[in-house]
């Protein structure tokens, strides 16, 4: 990999390796490869690995790390070496296993509170908006913000809109867009993205062994359903 990287502490119990600050498929794939490398090496003291668009962060327990890994200098010095090795030794996945998940969306005004606003701002019809949003296959770059909230990208340039100035209450299942990203709110939550539709799928369910529908690295394709189809969509009962 030719891109530069930077390793830095986030306090004294977390550290990041950053490959840039932008959304890029190849960079994100490298981040995932580093995560896989770190998971496979099961380094004592690493508690969690946070994947973002172009960076990876590890939370670690400095005590366990120091005790188990015979560290003479600082614990950060050791984690710095681990992240460097993860960068140099991880190999990009051949993208064989990644799934494409189909997600139904009802793009009606009742569910997409900002759909008219977005159409007016972008000077497109509702049909065009639906077509632009549902014809692409997106990649899940990262998961964060809420349990199961996946950041998908990148959307057609003709749909790029800024976030709202102030967050409003958003219903679970709402599909939103912000900058070059799109995403689904898995839970009722305040949110600042422009809401253009809603899926009847339950994107997060804590009672399931696999509580989320989407995982980082998956691909997503939206397809349009009518209001009737939305209302009659089979609900999974736990």
């Amino acid at each position: 990999m030719s891109q530069p990287y930077k390793i830095f502490p986030i306090g004294d119990a977390a550290a990041s390796i950053e490959l840039g600050s932008y959304i890029n498929e190849e960079v994100n794939a490298k981040v995932l490869a580093m995560r896989a490398w770190l998971s496979n090496h099961a380094i004592d003291g690493i508690k969690d690995i946070i994947v973002a668009y172009s960076s990876l962060t590890v939370y670690y327990d400095p005590i366990i790390m120091k005790k188990k890994n015979a560290i003479s200098e600082t614990v950060f010095g050791f984690i710095h070496q681990c992240l460097e090795m993860a960068f140099h030794e991880s190999v990009l996945n051949e993208e064989t296993e990644s799934k494409t998940i189909q997600i139904p969306v009802c793009y009606s005004n009742g569910f997409g509170m900002d759909i008219d606003f977005v159409c007016a701002q972008k000077n497109i019809s509702k049909q065009e908006l639906v077509h632009l949003h549902s014809s692409r296959i997106y990649k899940v770059y990262m998961i964060g913000f809420l349990p199961g909230f996946s950041y998908l990208g990148t959307i057609d340039e003709r749909l790029v809109m800024p976030r709202k100035q102030k967050p409003v209450m958003v219903e679970a299942g709402s599909v939103g867009i912000a900058a070059s990203q799109t995403g689904i709110y898995p839970l009722n939550s305040p949110g600042g993205w422009q809401i253009i539709g809603r899926t009847p799928l339950q994107m997060f369910n804590p009672n399931l062994e696999q509580p989320v529908v989407l995982n980082v690295g998956d691909h997503v394709k939206f397809y349009e359903i009518s209001k009737e189809e939305f209302e009659n969509y089979p609900v999974l009962v736990n």
Binding site: I10, S21, A52, S55, T57, M142
Partner: peptide, 12 residues
């Protein structure tokens, strides 16, 4: 500053 989402921790 234009940043894409990145890792934060308790105390950031």
């Amino acid at each position: 500053i234009e940043m894409v989402s990145c890792g934060v921790s308790y105390g950031t």
